[in-house]
Amino acid sequence: MEIIMSILAGILFSAGVYLLLQRQLLKIIFGTAILSHGAHLLILTMGKLNRGAPPILEEGIDVYTDPLPQALILTSIVISFGVTSFLLVLAYRAYKTNKSDNMEQLRGSDHD
């Protein structure tokens, strides 16, 4: 199962990177979103999958899945959410101000 999930993470990374290389600001934000999904999946996979019960302590259960990667991912999800929403508003503002969302045109001048 871990190998399949590794491949899936790789696919998500590919898609994310491909979107990052696009000219349109909106697509770049899509790319960061997919990249963070891929990263989260990767962290979870690296902590081994399906080795016991959910990490909520109950009488009579000895084997739980690793809780640490889950805690890390939870932190990461919130942070990437913050960043994605910030980027989204930034993209919206950039588009409004510059009348363009094409990154090839948003280069700035030589003296910036």
């Binding site: 590794s6 491949i7 993470a9 790789g10 696919i11 990374f13 590919s14 898609a15 994310g16 990177v17 491909y18 290389l21 891929g38 990767l42």
Partner: peptide, 10 residues
């Protein structure tokens, strides 16, 4: 490039 990144991550 994106395919290589994906393969490398995997």
């Amino acid at each position: 490039i994106s395919a290589s990144v994906g393969v490398l991550v995997t």
